[in-house]
Design a protein around this nucleic acid. Structure first.
Lengths: 224, 224
DNA sequence: GGATGTGAATGTCTTCACAGCT
DNA sequence: AGCTGTGAAGACATTCACATCC
């Protein structure tokens, strides 16, 4: 039982994507150096990340692209398909539903819910948008382990509580709010506002902070 | 000139959101303890994060909500409005455009581009979707510092190169691919596939890794 | 009394550097 | 010779604990 950091997992996920590109290009083998170059990290980092899970490389040669892809898919739990429930059939929900990458990596959105009666009953190629009220019963048919929350902030906690009640074990949250879930439910947040603010911070301070002691209000912008 | 970590900035951004909620609820003052509770972190962490930028609290009392909001907005560069250019008028682009939170925090999407002639010419309340070809000229009118990329992976690098050429200084990327930008351009990635995979990893391994040495794990295609 | 601000201690992640396998 | 895998060192981030101030 070893603990693995979030950042290692994110990088593995990135490596997987890059390896799939390499495979498409017919590349058969890759060194940690080359992979690191594409991933924007260091060779040592790549090797450390992989070494947590086993030893996949061949010394003097590198990694066999196809094999490493298979290993990573297994590690990341992509050796199966996942049934996903999407809550929120607004613009974000629609965008997520339409994103082919999900399906390609094994995530099937097989249930869609919305509170808006105008949306309920719509068919999104094959999948009917159902009323949020019916969520528990609809999910009772089972097999749903992942929920995606794409509703306004004020509705998010309620939605999450119901997903948890329906035995969902992991949630990807797009609502810009802090959610509370039981210990054993995994929660990941995607918060665009946070990302934007991190950019505006970076632009404003150009990477470092003005020493200390807040100067006067002047939001000093600077040039390149 | 002090270096501040990404995670500190993300948390400040989160604190800001929580403080705004508190303010709406009429709360006047808050302790690091209480704020930490809502943010899902520790009181010490809250104080450390803030202390990087100055001393904003009152001993024995806590932080005055309104004042701290103002401080955080200044720190995060939200004391002004930002002109944002959005590239990609598909589902994700539409979702981002419709997200009120951007506008509320000072980010104005004032230009939208798409390569698809069918989309070009559409009006998104007030803003016309323009041809991607015209990007450089259109952005030459100036004032655009942030670009949002919401195009398919294969088109993303080209788009980014053009944004950079048009003097954009920061980019928020939604395309599931690794982008390359010059040193002085800030880049943030939002990658839903990575988040999903981190969930499937967590579900598969329930938080920790199966010791070492990959077990018989079903899905493996093995080396020759 | 109550809660901040912060050095010191601890914990975690990344980078170095090299032994060891192919 | 080339490149991995990994202990050890170093950098960075979080937590502790307490003097300090309102």
């Amino acid at each position: 039982m070893k603990k693995v950091s979030e950042s290692t997992i994110s990088r593995l996920s990135l490596y997987l994507r890059l390896l799939e590109e390499l495979e498409r290009d017919g590349v058969e083998t890759v060194s940690s150096e080359r992979l690191a170059g594409r991933a924007g990290t260091t060779a040592a980092q790549v090797r450390k990340d992989l070494s947590v899970f086993g030893t996949f490389g061949k010394r003097g040669l590198g990694y066999v692209v196809t094999d490493l892809i298979a290993e990573l898919r297994t590690i990341l739990g992509l050796g199966r398909r996942w049934k996903v429930a999407l809550v929120g059939a607004g613009k974000i929900g629609a965008a997520l539903y339409g994103y082919e990458g999900f399906r390609r990596q094994g995530f099937d959105i097989e249930a869609v819910f919305d509170a808006d009666p105008a949306k309920v009953g719509q068919r999104w190629n094959g999948v009917e948008v159902r009323a949020a009220e019916g969520m528990e019963e609809a999910l009772a048919e089972g097999g749903y382990e992942i929920g995606v929350v794409a509703v306004p902030a004020r509705a998010a906690q309620t939605v999450v509580d119901r997903l948890v009640a329906a035995n969902i074990r992991a949630i990807l949250n797009f609502a810009p709010t802090k959610l509370h879930v039981p210990e054993d439910v995994k929660l990941k947040n995607v918060n665009m506002a946070v990302e934007m603010e991190s950019l505006s911070y970076a632009l404003t301070n150009d990477g470092d902070v003005p020493a200390r002691g807040r100067g006067p209000g002047g939001a000093g912008s600077s040039a390149r």
